[in-house]
């Protein structure tokens, strides 16, 4: 049979766990298929600019990519729903919604028939909750949030702004310096494990944790439709099986790393604290209003995905109360 070669990209940077798991998966597919399907891994940003991986898959520049749905907000506002947003599903709830409750189908529907890329159940890795804020100042009540100079991205930024925070837009790479120099007082970034690797213990004393701001920042594998169709059935099964395994492995690994990171932040002299209930409640309420308003304004798929996630959240909570 013909030997097939795919190119696949994570979204980087090289030391990020999702890039590392992406690379491991590529090698595993090549090995398990005995070279019938060689998947060459690339670091995010090395071929096309970082965060534009899915368009490259669509164009056939890449055959596969591992990226955050949120990075496709430029095309589909609804992509922000399956992302690190306040009120999103967390961990296993998100993965089971994606795999069994129609999440993957809705995502394909959102991308549309004419878009030359698809995803499938098992392709989503739910990251552990993101750190709520790394902060220089204590956050005890909503008064501390009002006027807080905080770096927030995405819809969360808009929601915090509505709650009175002075939200600042700064690229991730400049956060460390901006904190060190006092341009901002607090910021959101990624999970405990990633943030520990970014050495953020050096620039902020308080680490506030709560799943309220970003219950999960999912990473999803996408493949080019034509490349997928051209794959023999046994290889399709092999790819799908390995993707499902590595996304689950990464999820568990990061859960474990985040638990360890709490100890590491503490040992480094940081205070790891729960976000006060008052702030969580205010954020959740504002987020619900925000998305309810947005569901009415955006195209029908937005409401469809939002409603599906919201009702799944209630059902999940009822079953896991």
């Amino acid at each position: 049979a013909d030997k097939i070669t795919w190119r696949s990209s994570g979204h980087g940077p090289a030391s990020d766990p999702s890039q590392i798991y992406h690379d491991m998966l590529c090698k595993a597919i090549t090995k398990a298929s005995d070279g019938r399907l060689t998947v060459k891994p690339f670091v995010g940003g090395s071929i096309v600019p970082a965060y534009q991986e899915l368009d490259a898959v669509e164009q056939g520049v890449l055959q596969m990519a591992y990226t955050c749905p949120m990075y496709n907000l430029d095309k589909w506002p609804a992509a922000g729903l399956i992302s690190s947003r306040p009120g999103c599903l967390a961990g296993n709830a998100l993965r089971s919604w994606f795999d069994f409750a129609g999440g993957a189908d809705l995502m394909n529907k959102m991308m549309g028939d004419s878009y030359n890329a698809i995803t499938f159940p098992g392709a989503l890795s739910p990251l552990p909750p993101e750190v709520f804020f790394h902060s220089k100042v204590e956050l005890n009540s909503m008064d501390d949030v009002k006027g807080l100079k905080a770096r927030c991205m995405g819809d969360g930024g808009e929601i915090f702004k509505r709650l009175g925070a002075a939200t600042v837009i700064i690229p991730g790479g400049e956060l460390y310096e901006a904190m060190q120099r006092g341009t901002i007082d607090a910021f959101e970034y990624s999970t405990l494990a990633s943030n520990w690797k970014m050495h953020f213990n050096e620039v902020a004393k308080y680490v506030y944790v709560s799943p309220a701001r970003a219950p999960s920042d999912p990473q999803v594998f996408f493949v080019n439709k034509e490349a997928w169709a051209a794959l023999p059935e046994d290889l399709k099964e092999l790819v799908q099986g390995l993707v499902a395994r590595f996304t689950q492995d990464q999820h568990e690994y990061l859960e474990y790393e985040s638990i360890k990171a709490v100890e590491e932040f503490r040992a480094a002299g940081n205070e790891v604290r729960r976000v006060p209930d008052e702030i969580v409640a205010a954020l959740t309420a504002e987020a619900d209003t925000f998305y309810a308003e947005k569901s009415e304004k955006e195209s029908p798929i937005f409401k469809e995905i939002y409603d599906s996630m919201t009702s799944y959240r209630s059902a999940y909570e009822a079953a896991n109360a």
Binding site: K75, C152, M153
Partner: peptide, 15 residues
């Protein structure tokens, strides 16, 4: 055609 926006910030200006 697709009303592309920029998402560096939550301003989301049209691209």
């Amino acid at each position: 055609r697709i009303n592309e926006v920029m998402f560096n910030s939550f301003w989301y200006p049209p691209a």
